[in-house]
Design a protein around this nucleic acid. Structure first.
Lengths: 331, 331
DNA sequence: CAACGTTGTTTCAACGTTGTAAACAGGTGC
DNA sequence: GCACCTGTTTACAACGTTGAAACAACGTTG
């Protein structure tokens, strides 16, 4: 085991508290003792025991990031930024996966209370606003990503309605008229899908175009592929997929059917995952500023952790950019 | 703050230790007191303070998983399995990213000592065997993935030489004769690249075929795309990319150049990331059993954490399967 | 020169938990 | 009546840290 303050104190011939003072950079320590102590510290290669420090201070320096699945590239990319932002505060990040299950989300919200983490960044899928509002626990919580606004906790996301409208407008601007949406969901009282659907509809309505909507259960490639197969019967000339994974699945279906992208069907996604920058054709998409999302989420969490409870929940928007690529523009 | 053992004890009219005994399922507690205590526990919604428990027990219940980058799909997929395997032991997993940098790897190895985590699963890139061997620290450590064997710590990986040979044999079996390798590295004393290169060479040598080798710095799509552009001059009829990201980048270059896969150039990768199952054409690859890798890594780590130090480092192999898809077989 | 403030250091207690050992009650056996 | 179990419960100390308070030594100040 490593050396404790006690060992250092013994070696340096001072009290434990003095060593503690040196370690914590307390001002009033005489140069002589400071030198002695520092020598002893480096001699024994002292490392503070963080369990003990945390017990004393009531903090762990660890936050949790709970998201549906780490192997969805969007979330993997987002995690990278969260981890980086947290690292600047010397926080560690434990990652939990909900798989979009209500029960897992409950478990995690509940588990936050066992003092292993100082706060939680949750990317919710299944849990409802009312259930969140009923939370008795006062551990710091930030909701990340697509979610009905004005909920009971701090929240950061892009403006999904406007983003979806922008993508749809892009397709309309290309002269497409039979524009389908792929990615609506039945069970998503709290999620993205309704917001993106609303944006899609707003754009179509503004131009008097008809809508076609395909539903999926989850945002994975194979569901995109399957839903696209069903859509082919409607002969759309453009498809707005509610995320990039769906779009990549859909692209596979279209190309396999011998149709061309974008000549026969223009395709757009949302998320800007790296895959879409290397697919053939490359995928037009809308790129949320993931670094900003992560930074804001961590900042909000820090404010909650440090601050007094009782402040009203805060709503924050992160930016985005439309990335027009080959799947709508052609080569 | 939550209730402590003391609060429960007061409410139930017993000693703190009795409550602790109930919480920990100690056998010799009379049914009557057990009931009393359990009532009080649920009444105050008791949660053990894990910082305190950890301080006492000297364990944190948290392990670290350090890998180059979370947004490389292979590592994201692997992380998912590690987190799942750890969850079965009630362990949390903090993720650290090294970005393949030596300094970060050192930092992380060093940081393990501050008692925040019980052990470390490291997927090393830059650090050398000798430096690892010189480690004085005795915190549990497991090396995960491609790495020179017989190092100073437990290690789990697939048999990279054999795997690379199998992929190359597959290409040879298709009748290809100008088979290039994409993904060799200059600086990788400790990594995958030399092993995979060796396997590739073994296969070619066995059939008397000539080799062509393209180097990259890191295993990312854009490097695969760039390296492939350089390879095109050699007019290979098949390319074995040392991982799937390289292959997907290469595929993009080939298709953009107006060549066909696999008719003009057959393409194979290694990793079996999900992207490759939905690219057009779908990507032939070799699929390491990631779930097995993760499980073994966690098991080895558990054994180290529980066990006495001093046992010799253990070498373990995980299985793999060749997934022949369109990029070599055609439709 | 007494009262006071500053600087440097220490003692003490506490954070919440659990291992150890000891205390206690209620038998059994002799 | 005593020694000796078995089962149940408790007191105590300890894990390593830090805030609060106390203390000693030394100027300053009125």
């Amino acid at each position: 085991m490593g050396a404790s303050l006690r060992d250092i104190a013994r070696l340096a011939g001072v009290s434990v508290k003095t060593v503690s003072n040196v370690v914590n950079g307390y001002a009033h320590v005489s140069p002589a003792t400071r030198a002695k102590v520092e020598h002893a510290l480096s001699q024994l290669d002292y490392r503070p025991n963080l369990s003990a420090r945390n017990l004393r201070r009531g903090r762990t320096g660890v936050i949790a990031l709970a998201l549906p699945e780490l192997d969805a590239p969007y979330f993997a990319e987002l995690s990278r930024f969260v981890i980086e932002a947290a690292a600047e505060l010397r926080w560690l990040v434990v990652i939990e996966q909900t798989d979009g299950s209500l029960e897992r989300e409950r478990q995690i919200l509940d588990g936050v209370r066992d003092h292993r983490v100082d706060g939680l960044i949750l990317s919710p899928v299944a849990i409802g606003v009312d259930e969140l509002a009923a939370r008795t626990d006062d551990t710091a919580l930030v909701l990340l990503g697509e979610r009905i606004h004005d909920g009971p906790a701090d929240h950061v996301a892009i403006d999904n309605v406007r983003a979806a409208r922008d993508v749809t407008e892009h397709l309309i601007g290309l002269g497409r008229t039979r524009i389908a949406a792929l990615g609506a969901q039945d069970n998503s009282a709290s999620g993205t899908a309704p917001l993106r659907l609303a944006g899609y509809r707003q754009a179509l309505a503004a131009h008097g175009l008809p809508e076609t909507v395909a539903k999926v259960e989850r945002y994975r490639r194979h569901e995109g592929a399957a839903a696209m197969a069903a859509l082919l019967g409607h002969r759309p000339d453009a498809v707005f997929c509610f995320n990039d994974l769906l779009a990549l699945g859909a692209m596979r279906t279209i190309l396999s059917a011998g149709l061309r992208v974008p000549e026969d069907i223009a395709l757009a996604g949302l998320d800007d995952i790296e895959d879409g920058r290397y697919s053939t054709p490359t995928l037009t998409t809308l790129a949320p500023d993931k670094a900003e999302l992560a930074r804001i989420a961590v900042d909000l969490l820090k404010r909650r952790i440090d601050g007094l409870p009782g402040h009203p929940p805060q709503e924050t928007r992160a930016g985005y950019r439309l990335m027009a690529r080959e799947s709508t523009l052609g080569r």
